[in-house]
Structure formats: structure tokens, C-alpha cells
């Protein structure tokens, strides 16, 4: 009996801390959202550009795209962020922490997103391109009117996955001094010597964001699949 009371008490204490600190994450949430949204949008733009480079017939442009993708995929994001924030100033390129983080995350996501787009494009049956070209379309017309719309639709589920990863990866920006959710949680933990309720709060915030994004993506997917049956 005494034991049960003890447990109930500690649960009570736990949630007292949770509710005390939950509202104090407002600025942190803004940072995390900023990092996520910008790295996703910029990453998508970079992804489109890099995919285009890979689809050109110019070997040296393809090569640039290949080198970029292999560097991003071949090294940890954490190191990439360190490099941009602490390394680039050594050659005179100074960015503030937030800009560095957004550049780093977008640069990172762009490589994966470009591979997602490329995979979706090559998955479109060649008969589609042939049918468009046989009507008299130029390569570019066939690409924009026939291939790309189908590829975008095709890529949504995988792209969504990458967007979710992007939200979680934004937590790595904590290592370059940005007080987004993760770093904020660490600071509160250090101040209170009571890390678990605070990390719990951080986890709940990530979970809510990702769940909302997932719902949004499911909606988009449903909208896009109207022509399937």
C-alpha cells in the first residue's frame, strides 16, 4: 500500500514538472518548425535541381550531382553541421547559427530528395515517354506534361518519409547552439537535475508535429490517387 502511494506520488511529481515546463518550449518549437520547414522546402528545391542535373546529357553536370550526393550520403549529418558552422568561417564564410543549420539540413535533405525524385522518374514506364513523343511533343514537353506529374505522385509516400526524418534531424542543430526543442530540453534538464519529465515533453512535441505532418501527407496521397481506380 505504501509502495503504491509512493508510485502515485512520483507520477504526480513527474507530471507537475511536465506541465510546468511544457509552456516554456514556445520559442524552441518555433525554432524546430523553422528548421524543419526551411530544410524541407529548400531541400526539395535542391533535390529538383540536382535531379535535373542528373537527367541532363552533360557528363560534367551529372558528375557534380554525383559528387554532391556521395558526400552527403557518405558522411554523418552531425559532421556536416560542424563543418558548416565551425569549418567554413576558417575560409571566410561566416553564417549565423540558424542559417548554418538551415543550410546544412537543406543540403543534407536535398541529396536524399533528389534520389527520391530520380527513382520516381525512372520508375515511369518508357511507353509514357514514347506515347508523348509520338504525338510530336519535344523532350521537355513530354517531361513536364507526362513524366513529372506522374513521378511527383509516385514520390509522395517516400518523400513524406524523408520529411519526417527532416523534422527529427533538426534536433542535431542543437550541437551548433540553436535552442530548438532538443537543446532547450537539455538546458532545462541541467538546470533542474530532473531530465525525464522534460525529455518527455520534448518527445511529445516531436510526436505531435510528426503526427500532424503524417496526416497531411495521407491527405495529399488520397487526393493524388483519385485516378487510380
Amino acid at each position: 500500500m505504501e509502495h503504491i502511494v509512493e508510485i502515485l506520488n512520483s507520477i504526480g511529481d513527474f507530471f507537475a514538472v511536465v506541465f510546468k515546463f511544457a509552456p516554456k518550449f514556445d520559442q524552441a518549437i518555433v525554432y524546430t518548425l523553422e528548421l524543419s520547414v526551411f530544410s524541407i522546402l529548400l531541400g526539395t528545391v535542391i533535390g529538383l535541381v540536382v535531379t535535373s542535373l542528373k537527367l541532363t546529357k552533360l557528363k560534367w553536370l551529372q558528375k557534380i550531382a554525383d559528387v554532391y550526393i556521395s558526400i552527403v550520403r557518405g558522411t554523418p549529418l552531425l559532421l556536416q553541421l560542424y563543418f558548416i558552422f565551425y569549418g567554413l568561417p576558417l575560409i571566410g564564410l561566416n553564417f549565423d547559427a540558424l542559417t548554418s543549420a538551415i543550410i546544412g539540413l537543406a543540403f543534407h535533405n536535398g541529396a536524399y530528395i533528389s534520389e527520391i525524385f530520380r527513382g520516381a522518374i525512372v520508375s515511369i514506364h518508357y511507353g509514357q515517354d514514347e506515347a508523348a513523343r509520338a504525338l510530336g511533343m519535344t523532350k521537355i514537353q513530354a517531361f513536364f506534361h507526362v513524366i513529372l506529374p506522374q513521378a511527383v505522385k509516385q514520390s509522395v509516400p517516400v518523400l513524406g518519409n524523408q520529411f519526417i526524418i527532416a523534422i527529427k534531424d533538426s534536433s542535431l542543430a542543437s550541437v551548433i547552439t540553436i535552442t530548438e526543442i532538443t537543446l532547450t530540453a537539455r538546458q532545462f534538464s541541467a538546470a533542474t537535475y530532473n531530465p525525464f519529465p522534460i525529455l518527455f515533453v520534448a518527445g511529445v512535441y516531436y510526436y505531435i508535429m510528426i503526427t500532424l505532418l503524417t496526416k497531411l501527407l495521407q491527405w495529399v496521397e488520397r487526393r493524388l490517387s483519385v485516378n487510380e481506380r
Binding site: H125, G127, Q128, A131, A134, G136, T138, P149, K153
Partner: peptide, 23 residues
């Protein structure tokens, strides 16, 4: 490619697998 695109606009093609645009 100009010649070829003009030619294709004049010469229609129907494929074994239809190749309609599903979207």
C-alpha cells in the same frame, strides 16, 4: 529534332499497350 517532331505530329501512332496517360 525539329524535323522529327514535325513528322510525329503528322504521323500518329497507336501502341500495343495503349500507353494512355494515367494521370
Amino acid at each position: 529534332s525539329h524535323d522529327i517532331n514535325t513528322l510525329r505530329a503528322k504521323v500518329g501512332m497507336v501502341f500495343q499497350t495503349f500507353n494512355l496517360f494515367p494521370h
